[in-house]
């Protein structure tokens, strides 16, 4: 199966502002890499369950107990922009 990627759409989904030249270059590289994946796609896997976790464990819960939160200053001081105890960003387009 020849790989044909709408690279601009992919970049938009991934929120990466790339130039036309960059898009073209990445598009070609992705197509090369995905051609290697073709062998994987050709492998017959009917009836094979996918593995998402290496180990057969379930739940891994924690009890509903409060633990200490961070001092806001400890992370707001690392923020690119903050105002009145909140993170500040430019206007949001809906």
């Amino acid at each position: 199966m020849p790989v044909d990627i709408d690279i601009a759409k992919v970049a938009n989904l991934a929120r990466l502002a790339l130039s036309e030249e960059e898009l073209a270059a990445y598009g070609t590289q992705l197509e090369d890499i995905l051609e290697h994946a073709e062998r994987v796609q050709a492998l017959p896997t009917d009836g094979v369950e996918p593995t998402s976790h290496p180990l057969p464990m379930v739940n891994g819960f924690r009890p509903d107990e409060r633990t200490e939160s961070l001092e806001p200053e400890s992370f707001l001081s690392e923020a690119p922009d903050a105002e009145d105890g909140q993170f500040r960003v430019p206007r949001i387009l809906e």
Partner: peptide, 12 residues
């Protein structure tokens, strides 16, 4: 075709 199949290869 991609992620799902790769996870099945993982099982193999």
């Amino acid at each position: 075709a991609f992620y799902g199949q790769a996870q099945r290869v993982r099982t193999l």
